[in-house]
């Protein structure tokens, strides 16, 4: 359902993506792991064209684009078939919780207010925040804001949801509530692309893990292969380093 070929992007002199290929099936939960600054988030933002790659082709469902000559219509199509959950939540500050979930349904999908409201309340109920309906985002904790933003993403019924480090800017004690919601979303069968540093969660939730480094996909496969039986030196090194550092943190605690 999603096919990316030879995705290339540089910021000035720096090559960020050096020809990435990726293929995702419907209902897949794909997790991107790897050191910081290797282009994991950038791939996600290329898929909805928030970041503009210089080269590459992409097939998403029935939409097919060549990034060299993408037009505005195609851009809107890509965005209207996907939704994104941001590291910094990015809830609309001038709208209440329920308006945040409703707005795209009204503006983009042209639903009636009532229809949008009913769907929004249903989704807020799912993420456990229907009682915050009338609050403004600034009144909510980070975890609550992120759950609203997941409801906002679900509201437009996207084919693919892009999660960009959804727990990285949360206080540690708020991470779990958000991960639980993401897990329940994954169980609905929607296709998910997730960038995360939560290794255990990645292992548990995904059916495909992509290890990236320096703008390239180094290895991809089912979680067991990547986490247990990786043949690749770089993958092994990264995971070993990750787990030993985390162990130190736990010991210090």
């Amino acid at each position: 359902m999603l096919n990316i070929e030879n995705l290339k992007l540089s910021f000035g002199e720096k090559e960020v993506l050096k020809g990435v290929n990726l293929s995702v099936d419907k209902g897949d939960v794909v997790t991107f792991i790897g050191p910081s600054g290797t282009g994991k988030t950038t791939i996600l933002k290329c898929i909805n064209y928030l970041v503009e790659p210089h080269e590459g082709r992409m097939q998403m469902g029935s939409i097919s684009v060549d990034f060299k000559k993408i037009n505005k219509k195609e851009t809107l199509k890509l965005r209207r078939n996907t939704a994104m959950v941001f590291q910094q939540f990015n809830l609309f500050k001038n709208k209440t919780v329920v308006e945040n979930v409703m707005d795209a349904q009204i503006a983009v999908q042209k639903k009636s207010k009532k229809e949008a409201y009913n769907k929004s309340m249903e989704l807020l109920d799912k993420v456990g925040l229907s009682d915050k309906e009338k609050d403004y985002p600034s009144k909510l904790s980070g975890g609550q804001q992120q759950r609203v933003s997941i409801a906002r993403a679900l509201a437009v019924e996207p084919d693919i949801i892009l999660f960009d480090e959804p727990t990285s800017s949360l206080d540690p004690e708020l991470v779990d509530e958000v991960l639980k919601v993401i897990e329940s979303v994954a169980k609905t069968g929607v296709t998910i692309l997730l960038v995360t540093h939560e290794m255990d969660f990645a292992r548990k939730i995904s059916n495909k893990v992509v290890f990236m480094e320096k703008g390239k996909v180094i290895e991809e496969g089912p979680p067991d292969q990547i986490f247990e039986n990786s043949e690749n030196e770089r993958t092994k090194q990264f995971l070993k380093k990750f787990y030993s550092e985390n162990k130190e943190v736990l010991e210090v605690r």
Binding site: R79, T82, F86, A107, V108
Partner: peptide, 27 residues
């Protein structure tokens, strides 16, 4: 108005005009 607000509107498929009138201008 932070860039994230614009990004969020774009990611949901708002046209530039919709993002401008519904999200950016009120803020």
């Amino acid at each position: 108005v932070s860039y994230g607000q614009m990004e969020a509107a774009r990611s949901l498929g708002y046209t530039p005009f919709q993002a401008f009138t519904r999200i950016i201008t009120p803020q």
